[in-house]
Design a protein around this nucleic acid. Structure first.
Length: 294
DNA sequence: GACGCGTGGTC
DNA sequence: TGACCAAGCGT
């Protein structure tokens, strides 16, 4: 990859983004850093189509970190609805509390500080700094990894988990210019989300098709290590989901007898309920009653 | 580094 | 049609 090709790739993908980007509520110019943070956490492992309505509801209900911090954590879990991975709601509540208490209710712009907040890892810290504040930082998510694997490395897919080589590559291809870097991060991510998808990529509408190493190699199939699928039916995940859904849908304490009805295997049910309590997602009350945490 | 963690859409 | 996948994180 010579420097001219890299510059051409930057230009074309950035132009493509300016032309084709989806209108998402958290991309409005007046969206706060809190709104960006919220959108990033909600989008972890979750399609944006399902995030948008919940994000709008949260922003109306809790427009700043302090507003969320004031609410009981259980309310965050309740209004998380069926987004999945409800521990994210709890961590968002903890993060909001820390931002209100330690950062004057202002979302930090330093990725290192952001990453010290609950539920904010490498990706989300970089994304918030880049998208909310325009900080020149290396953003690496699953979309960017796949785009760069194809475009620069010539592989059909990225590795199952983030490798050091992928991080180095992402840093190496980040534009030098601050503004270009800011757009590049969101633009390469968007390309992966809507064109350069994992299955059935629409290469015909790709702005860098002729520069793509994977295409030039004849689009060979993925030949890396196998990716393990997640089990669902009969797992603790499913049972936890059912228990929590019952507690969300009830607007007060639920008896153990009611929870007994959601899963017949008593040992597994008890284990999952204990796990939810351990995680802070459920609070045991007097008299064999259970509720979302207050 | 591997694993567990929710949910629903897609082909 | 069930496997795969979707803007990861914490342990």
């Amino acid at each position: 990859m010579n420097i001219d090709d890299l510059g051409e790739i930057h230009c074309r993908i950035i132009e493509w983004y300016r032309r084709e980007q989806r209108e998402l509520p958290w991309r409005n110019a007046d969206c706060s850093a809190w709104g960006v943070l919220l959108s990033e956490v909600m989008s972890q492992q979750t399609p944006v189509a399902r995030v948008a309505p919940i994000w709008l509801e949260w922003m109306e209900r809790w427009p700043t970190p302090a507003d969320l911090a004031t609410a009981p954590p259980g309310e965050a879990v309740r209004h998380w609805g069926r987004l999945g991975y409800p521990r994210r709601a709890l961590r968002l509540h903890e993060a909001a509390t820390a931002i209100a208490r330690d950062h004057d209710n202002v979302v930090p712009s330093d990725p290192v500080v952001l990453q010290s907040l609950p539920g904010i890892g490498t990706y989300t810290a970089a994304a918030v700094a880049a998208f909310a504040y325009g900080v020149r930082t290396v953003v690496v998510d699953t979309n960017i990894r796949r785009v760069e694997a194809r475009l620069f490395t010539g592989d059909a897919l990225a590795a199952p988990t983030l490798t050091a080589a992928e991080s180095r590559l992402a840093a190496a291809v980040l534009p030098d210019d601050d503004e270009d870097a800011a757009v590049w991060n969101v633009a390469s991510m968007e390309l992966g989300a809507v064109v350069c998808t994992a299955k059935n990529p629409t290469c015909g509408s790709c702005p860098v098709l002729d520069l793509c190493a994977w295409q030039r190699a004849g689009a060979p199939p993925y030949d890396g290590p196998a990716r393990k699928g997640q089990k669902w039916a009969g797992t603790d995940r499913q049972v936890r989901g059912k228990l929590l859904q019952t507690l969300r849908d009830a607007h007060g304490p639920v008896s153990r007898g009611t929870l007994d009805l959601v899963w017949s295997d008593e040992a597994q049910r008890d284990r999952c309920l204990a796990g939810l309590i351990e995680d802070g997602l459920v609070e045991p009350l007097d008299g064999e009653q259970f509720a979302l945490p207050t």
